[in-house]
């Protein structure tokens, strides 16, 4: 099962990132993972947060936000850990639009992948014995660390 990510449109002006993060803070929402895509004209802030529904509702009143399905996989802490995951996707001709990574605890890293076909990606990963995280798994996993 895929997990939900929030994407926030940022104008390329000083203070716009801080403003978006202030809304999240005001809602008492915790950021689990983030990445920022930037162009010369605008940025897109992508977040995985606690209480995603509340976060989306809150942000949608203030800014341009969209929720998207992404997949999260655990990456073994060894040489080739990520490469093997990407090999599986390549064989299935699944395109990766973007990805970012985060660590949850010592020696465990996770990759968040936005792919052309979420369901197919999960299917081929599972067939290769690679587990993907469910929304709840991810939250529990991260919550335990708090």
């Amino acid at each position: 099962m895929s997990i939900k990510q929030l994407s926030i449109y940022l104008e390329n002006k000083p203070g716009k990132l801080a403003e978006a993060l202030r809304y999240i803070k005001e809602g008492g929402i915790n950021i689990r993972a983030l990445s920022l895509a930037d162009t010369s004209e605008f940025g897109i802030l992508r977040l995985i947060t606690s209480d995603l529904e509340k976060a989306e509702e809150l942000l949608s009143q203030k800014t341009v936000v969209k929720s998207t399905d992404v997949i999260a996989v655990k990456v073994d802490d060894r040489s080739g850990g990520l490469s093997e995951i990407l090999d599986v996707l390549e064989k299935a001709e699944i395109n990766i639009d973007y990805m970012y990574a985060f660590t949850a605890r010592l020696n465990s890293a996770y990759a968040v992948l936005r792919v052309s076909d979420c369901a197919l990606a999960e299917e081929v990963l599972h067939e290769s014995g690679i587990a993907t995280l469910k929304g709840r798994d991810l939250m529990n996993l991260l919550d335990r660390e708090d």
């Binding site: 990510q5 994407s7 449109y9 605008f42 341009v64 969209k66 973007y98």
Partner: peptide
Amino acid sequence: EFPTEMFSDKVSDVQKKE
């Protein structure tokens, strides 16, 4: 003004709109 329903999490989609 950028309508929320036109926004995408992909940079290339937003650039295409522009």
